[in-house]
């Protein structure tokens, strides 16, 4: 029996459609499970109280605070570095071997396993620079990890600013740096912000890099300075689900839901900024 090309096409498209469903259905199942089981745990106390009874009761407030501190530290370190690196690549770099090397380095940084960042951060920041296990060491480690995300996004944002903008500014006698600062950057800022926020949401969810550089199992009080350890949401979820016996699954799901909620919320902010920017774009 010979199948006609049209029938083959129908079969092929059906198979592809089914495969696509196989990928996407679990995503919604995961989110549904988290919402359903996690929502029972969410209460004012859960979000604002400290863990009690060996973390089997109480809330996750210190972990939320710790993650926020880590994320703020990460942005502070990564944004300037990533932005200037992107400016270099778009505005200053000539197509030579050095540029090619920088590009290769970015690709490689993006591919380094997160646990290797953890090892590196411990070796360099915690031990060699004697920062100890601290918010500072964890933030710096995460910053290097999200650097490729920020650079790639900023680079794209900068290169979508039309060349004519630069030419007009330079023709008016404005210097190169002033052109970048006053003309190019304001037009690229949304794209840069979007990339930065996406990088940040990645940093908020990572566990392995902070495992030996910042995270604490349990702390009786909130961190007082950037040289203190902190609790963090992803690490707290890890602890709850593998290190502490007999934890009520409700608390585990609740922690997972708060973490995912935080990550999705930051992503949503990025998407809104991007959409508003697209709507306003004139060229």
């Amino acid at each position: 029996m010979k199948i006609s090309p049209q029938a083959k096409e129908k079969i092929a498209f059906l198979v592809l459609g089914i495969a696509t469903c196989l990928v996407l259905i679990p995503v919604f199942v995961i989110i549904f499970i988290l919402m359903e089981k996690g929502a029972q745990a969410i209460s004012w106390e859960f979000l604002t109280a400290k863990p009690r009874m060996g973390m089997r009761a109480g809330g996750i407030f210190p972990a939320i605070v710790g993650t926020v501190y880590l994320v703020l530290g990460t942005v502070t370190a990564a944004l300037p570095l990533g932005l200037f690196a992107a400016i270099y690549l778009v505005e200053y770099a000539k197509g030579n071997w050095l540029t090619r090397m920088v590009e290769v380095a970015i690709v490689n940084l993006a591919g380094v396993p997160s646990v290797v960042y953890g090892l590196f951060g411990m070796g360099l920041f915690v031990i060699f620079m004697k920062l100890g296990t601290s918010i500072l060491a964890g933030s710096l480690t995460l910053a290097i990890m999200i650097l490729p995300v920020i650079i790639t996004a900023s680079r794209e944002a900068l290169s979508t600013v039309p060349q004519s903008f630069r030419e007009v500014s330079r023709a008016l006698g404005v210097s190169k740096w002033q052109t970048i600062w006053h003309v190019v950057l304001p037009n690229a800022i949304s794209g840069i912000l979007t990339g930065t926020i996406l990088g940040v949401s990645r940093a908020a969810g990572e566990t392995a890099p902070i495992l030996f550089t910042a995270a604490a199992f349990y702390l009786p009080k909130l961190p007082q300075s950037i040289f203190d350890q902190c609790m963090a949401l992803p690490y707290h979820l890890y602890v709850l689900s593998t290190q502490v016996p007999n934890v009520n699954p409700k608390i585990q799901y609740g922690t997972a839901l708060v973490l995912v909620g935080l990550v999705f919320f930051t992503n949503l902010v990025a998407i809104i900024i991007r959409a508003r920017f697209r709507a306003r774009k004139q060229w």
Binding site: V23, L24, V27, E206, L259, N267
Partner: peptide, 23 residues
Amino acid sequence: LKAGVELLAAIPSIVIGFIGMMT
């Protein structure tokens, strides 16, 4: 569909591990 795939990429690995372990 693209948004769905991006959603999957955004879920932290610890959460995927946790859900995998439980379900």
